[in-house]
Design a protein around this nucleic acid. Sequence first.
DNA 1: GATTAATTGACTAATAAAGTCATGTATTAT
DNA 2: ATAATACATGACTTTATTAGTCAATTAATC
Lengths: 146, 146
Amino acid sequence: MKLSTRARYGTRALLDLALHYKSGPVLLKDVARRQRISLSYLQHLIAPMVAEGIVGSIRGVRGGVWLAKPPEEINLGYIIGLLEGSLAPAECVDNPETCSRSGACATQDVWGEIKEAIDTVLESMTLQDLVERQKNKSHEEITYQI
Amino acid sequence: MKLSTRARYGTRALLDLALHYKSGPVLLKDVARRQRISLSYLQHLIAPMVAEGIVGSIRGVRGGVWLAKPPEEINLGYIIGLLEGSLAPAECVDNPETCSRSGACATQDVWGEIKEAIDTVLESMTLQDLVERQKNKSHEEITYQI
DNA sequence: GATTAATTGACTAATAAAGTCATGTATTAT
DNA sequence: ATAATACATGACTTTATTAGTCAATTAATC
Ligand code: FES
Ligand code: FES
């Protein structure tokens, strides 16, 4: 029951962009380096975001990518939805017909509740919240080094 | 981010046993038929439960398996833990050292919160709760057929 | 001792995820 | 123009994990 690396990397990449919000285009190569993701893989992760319009991009010299929406307007549920699809722990939560005993299956309810619980967490948090947490962390890290 | 069939089948199998609690040994073959799981697969799922002592078993004629603890004392978190291990959506939640940027990674916190949310749902529910839900469902199903 | 049913181990198949590589297209600078 | 840069796209390979099967074994009953 692990999140795909796709979702984890993608989220980290977006957080990286959020940390550079309104600073002009950043190179995907730099995001890849900072987040320790291979560039070619990252290119595939970022593509759907660009298509969706939450990431802007421009090619060529002085090109790059950037967050196209305010971080406080992007909630994590939406991001994970794009990167990974539904977080239902069983297919039958979203498509009851895929489970033979659906309709008289008590466990289905439980899987549904889990999905709801996950969604609640993710929908209550925006990229901006992550940015703030990240800034605190980085600060702590520096302070501790004294 | 799907639960393994191992965990889903295993939970259903235990619910089946819970529905037959205190009715003597039931044949694994019958559980398999009712729950539409292949017998050979189910045998592998039930083994760790027997080892753990929450399922009793006896071989040979008139043998079978049964729930060895009261359903209200078995919570789902425990079951899923046995069948699938931790429900942390990222390895670094349980083992921070597996993620290179751990310690200064804001997303790790989010994955942690998701784990907590899932565990809360599962730990608040026992097999007995499932039994009651299941009985309601079956009843509804019959009623609706009138 | 014949039959039944759980136990165990080894093995195969199927699926999906992760990652790479090569090619194409748009943009800018000279 | 054209060379250089950087995103875009598609095809492909590798890897890992899960799911599932089969066969042999052990224990209990009749
Ligand atoms: S209906 Fe899908 S697990 Fe029961
Ligand atoms: S530390 Fe594991 S996702 Fe960041």
